[in-house]
Design a binder for these strands. Structure first.
Lengths: 126, 126
DNA sequence: TTTGTATTCAACGGATTAGTTGATCAACTG
DNA sequence: CAGTTGATCAACTAATCCGTTGAATACAAA
């Protein structure tokens, strides 16, 4: 049940979670402090149950955590998870265009690797 | 057909696009320079057509663009789109916890707004 | 204990997604 | 021209996702 830190499953879920406008608005709201499910559901035209599911998606992505307060389950934003996302993006944000070499040259004249010698395992990570 | 800058549809698609490990690896590869569909498909165990679809998803999200080179369609990363994602995240990365007020007080004692006076339209954006 | 409030669970339908295979299109090569 | 390469289109399947409604749970208040 514990999350596996060597898998990128959390990263998958976190990006997908932020791909929904409802969930992004929830995150935006939570950045101003914790809120209950009812609070979070209020601005939306969808059912409370649907919002509850969205919160579960955010929780499984590690983006939020839940505490307990009587019958309420306050939701808190987990800023660390958001930082992981920016960290991933920042790793690839800068494009190394290799401007000294034209695109045609790149495509027709592979630098040092002959067509038979493929090295697919060190491509990248995550 | 032109993208509508006032909609967050692009943001939706971009986050969802990065939620797939295959597409993240494609982005990672493209950060080192443009590549053809065949190049991008090589490291994967899935069909070329599947990779072609992944590229279309990335393209519709604004994350990549395609050019033309004879029968090849080189794919280029669009760093601007990645920056938009980090920009969104950075807006909410810092949590304003309002530590001077306890969670219970937050929940049971709404600051200045009486329960009847709701103002849901300025909640947030995107 | 009964009632009310806050939230989740369960089952379902409709839409979307990621993969497949087979056919097609476009451009280069001999 | 015919053949090959690079990539897309089309049709299909299995799985997942987003929303619904109705029932169940947990705690509080009367």
């Amino acid at each position: 049940m514990l999350p596996d830190p060597t898998s990128d499953d959390r990263l998958d879920r976190a990006f997908v979670a932020l791909g929904d406008p409802v969930r992004r608005r929830i995150v935006a709201r939570l950045s101003r402090g914790p809120a209950t499910v009812g609070d979070l559901a209020a601005p939306f035209a969808i059912s409370l149950q649907a919002v509850s599911k969205h919160i579960q998606v955010l929780e499984q992505a590690g983006l939020v955590t839940r505490t307990r307060d009587a019958q309420r389950r306050p939701v808190h934003l987990n800023p660390g998870a958001l930082e992981e996302l920016t960290a991933w993006i920042d790793r690839y944000r800068l494009v190394h265009e290799q401007s000294y070499r034209t695109l045609d040259a790149l495509l027709t004249d592979p630098p040092t690797a002959p067509p038979g010698a493929a090295e697919p395992s060190q491509e990248d990570r995550s």
